[in-house]
C-alpha cells in the first residue's frame, strides 16, 4: 500500500498555517489569537515531519521537540501576560489594548 505522499502533508501544513494567520488577524479574543499562533506552530511541526520523511532523517523530529518545548514556555509566559490584561481592563479583547499609539 502506498504511503501518503509528503506533499499532502506539506499542503496540509500550509493550509493550517494560513488558517492560523487568518485567525490571528481576525479574532479579537486574546486566547483565541494565541490559539491561532499555536496552530501556526503546529503547522510548522507538521511541515518538519513531512520533510523528515522525505529526507529520512531524525533531525527534524528532534527539532519538533524543541519547538514544542519552546511553545510551551511561550504559552506559560503568554497566559501570564493575558491575565495581566484581564486584571487591568477587565476584558480579553485585544482591541482594548490600544493606549500606546502614534
Amino acid at each position: 500500500m502506498g504511503m501518503v505522499p509528503a506533499t499532502h502533508y506539506l499542503a496540509l501544513g500550509a493550509v493550517l498555517f494560513v488558517i492560523g494567520v487568518a485567525g490571528f488577524i481576525v479574532r479579537r479574543n486574546v486566547i483565541t489569537m494565541f490559539m491561532s499562533v499555536e496552530l501556526m506552530l503546529n503547522a510548522v511541526n507538521l511541515t518538519f515531519l513531512a520533510y523528515a520523511r522525505t529526507w529520512n532523517q531524525v533531525d527534524a523530529h528532534i527539532f519538533v521537540f524543541f519547538v514544542m518545548t519552546v511553545a510551551a514556555a511561550e504559552a506559560a509566559v503568554g497566559l501570564a501576560l493575558i491575565l495581566g490584561l484581564d486584571r487591568h481592563s477587565q476584558t480579553l479583547d485585544i482591541d482594548s489594548a490600544d493606549k500606546l499609539q502614534g
Binding site: V21, F24, I25, R28, D95, A97, K99, Q101, G102
Partner: peptide
Amino acid sequence: AARMQSGNTRTYAAWIV
C-alpha cells in the same frame, strides 16, 4: 507615518502579513 501606528495589535499583524 505615525498614523500607521494605530495601536491595534491585529492591524500590526496585518502589516506583518
